[in-house]
Design a protein around this nucleic acid. Structure first.
Lengths: 211, 211
DNA sequence: GTCTATATAGGGATAGAC
DNA sequence: GTCTATCCCTATATAGAC
């Protein structure tokens, strides 16, 4: 991937991108585990392998780093969830939606948790972005459901609460995984996620009366 | 309620109980809004109407106060949820369970959120109590579901994931209420909770194939 | 861009008078 | 039980040398 003849300015930019990505990855993990206030930039820097002052060269304030973390979380999530409701049979779309959201919980648990922590705390630092980037997507999904109902393609359920339910069930496999692990007396495995997907899909599809 | 002839020792105890309850109530709210590290005992004390040093007379450390907060949250929750699965038709028990859990989310959103924050963070400070007090209850519920399946009273679903799903859907009406408010462009009302209850019950009952 | 040094604030916790 | 005063630590952020 590295072009040997790349000029120095481009190499500098690439190094910077890589370093920033390392910092953000460590920040996601720590913000998820310890919360915003419980995480110090010194420990993020230490775990990312640079000094606190050096980290602050790349991210001038803790809030800037936090915003960047949530920006990246949303970028990744929106990219994965895009175009899911565009077309197809309701049952297939719903199954794909559940599968994609659950996959995100499994593959990016820290991202899911950072987002959840922000929402639970009242979205005090990131509410505007949620309003601008997340809410329109959710509203569009609800409209898709309502279109299906109007067309008689699924049973008449409350589309808003149906979406909230799907979101809640899939999200909890990231957020509440620690409690699930205590109940199961072991960490969640890939098989658990597959069984979760089947159970959730069964509930949703049975409620809207499509196979 | 106050007996005029109550002796001074009893009155002192009662005042202490009331003051501690005020402190805990304020602590629940602040821990839910700002997290453990984001909440200072000075601000809890200020909002509860006493000095920081005086608060520390009643709760010697911040952790002690936090433990007390979670103890009280669990007490309240366990009391409300007790005896729900003891008897009755599966459909009635499931409906009552959903209703009770959802009512807790509506009436004690801060309690739900403090608990959620602790779990999301990996239950680092309260994991042992969750293991001792919550997990046995959840396992018993799962066994009840499995008993119904074995007896052919409900369809054969994955009982564990069914319970996780019910927990997730009801819990989210406390934890994710801020995001729901953004989607609806208004705060959740009693009517929203009623509609949520109907939608969740519909999903659960349809999945286990009982009316 | 990375380092040493430091400013400045706030937090939890303690001591001791009353 | 409540107050004043204070210790000690950690945190974010900044200044300036190299």
């Amino acid at each position: 991937m590295d072009k040997p003849r790349m000029n120095s300015a481009a190499r500098r930019l690439q190094n910077r991108d890589r370093l920033e990505a390392d910092i953000v990855a460590e920040a996601v993990r720590m913000f998820a585990e310890c919360g915003y206030e419980g995480t110090s930039i010194a420990r993020i820097a230490e775990n990312a392998g640079l000094s606190k002052q050096n980290l602050m060269y790349y991210f001038p304030t803790k809030q800037a780093l936090y915003q960047r973390v949530l920006d990246d979380v949303l970028d990744e999530w929106l990219e994965r969830m895009a175009h899911l409701a565009d077309a197809g049979q309701p049952a297939d779309v719903l199954r794909a939606y559940i599968q994609a959201k659950l996959k995100f919980s499994r593959e990016q648990p820290y991202a899911s948790r950072v987002y959840a922590l922000e929402v639970i705390g009242g979205a005090k630092l990131y509410g505007e972005q949620i309003r601008d980037r997340v809410v329109p997507v959710l509203r569009r999904d609800i409209e898709v459901f309502e279109g299906w109902i109007a067309a008689g393609r699924i049973a008449p359920v409350n589309a808003t609460h149906l979406l909230f339910a799907i979101w809640a069930m899939t999200q909890s496999y990231a957020d509440f995984a620690p409690q699930m692990a205590l109940v199961l007396d072991r960490r969640l495995t890939r098989k658990d996620y597959d069984e979760a997907e089947q159970t959730i899909a069964r509930m949703v599809l049975a409620a809207v009366a499509v196979a």
